[in-house]
């Protein structure tokens, strides 16, 4: 049996079902909340922090990620308050500074009126949103990749940075990646070169000797080898 209950969303009384996240409810009512690590079909992760909303009465509120926060009866939620927008812009500025080459992030930043980046560009190729990890585990039943290390050292890779036996070369990880999905379409046959990423510098060539985007063979890697 479905239990309906009500709470306040941006000043309006809205209804929600049990086990719905605030993000889902907001989406249902047509309120757009930007997301990055969230993807339908994958479990919510709450790592990118972009989908922040303000929960609680003014003055006593706190910011939570709407993708992981369950809608509960009687709570007060604001999705576009001053506090939320300010922090969201700061996050986007940091995203662009970390990963300046990503079109996805640039578009998102400009949509939220981030016009200036005050940090040194880092040129990273991964924002650790973890979509690929969850895609591999939850949809492809692969579990070929995961997180390694912590803090600023954290990265996503195969166990021991070696080519994984569990990887079926499905390309799901690249398909969902917000940073590199336009880059490489994955290999065709084992011996052919896909060539899709020839015009780009291979981001993982420095890190992996034999793996590129956890896939093998890859045009860029073959090129690197000469």
């Amino acid at each position: 049996m479905v239990i309906l209950f009500g709470f306040t969303l941006n000043g309006f009384e809205v209804l929600a079902w049990e086990n719905m996240s605030i993000l889902e409810v907001a989406g249902f009512y047509g309120i757009e909340i930007p997301t990055l690590c969230f993807m339908e079909g994958l479990s919510p992760y709450g790592g990118c922090r972009l989908c922040l909303v303000e929960v609680g009465p003014v003055g006593k509120s706190r910011l939570v990620t709407s993708c992981t926060y369950p809608a509960r009866e009687g709570i007060e939620v604001r999705t576009h308050s001053q506090k939320v927008l300010q922090q969201r812009r700061m996050l986007l500025e940091l995203y662009v500074a970390a990963c300046p080459s990503s079109k996805w992030l640039q578009d998102l930043a400009s949509k939220h009126h981030v016009t200036e980046v005050r940090f040194k560009p880092k040129g990273e190729e991964c924002i650790l949103c973890g979509r690929c990890v969850r895609m591999c585990r939850e949809q492809m039943m692969g579990e070929a990749i995961g997180y390694v290390d912590r803090g600023t050292q954290r990265r996503i890779t195969t166990p021991f940075d070696k080519k994984s036996e569990d990887c079926r070369l499905c390309g799901g990880c690249m398909y969902v990646c917000p940073v590199c999905q336009l880059r490489c379409q994955g290999p065709k046959e084992e011996s052919t070169l896909c060539s899709s990423c020839l015009n780009l510098y291979p981001p993982c060539a420095e890190k992996f000797e034999e793996v590129m985007c956890y896939m093998d063979p890859c045009a860029a890697c073959e090129l690197e080898k000469g």
Partner: peptide
Amino acid sequence: GESCGKCF
């Protein structure tokens, strides 16, 4: 070094 690194 000690942050878990999950939250951006």
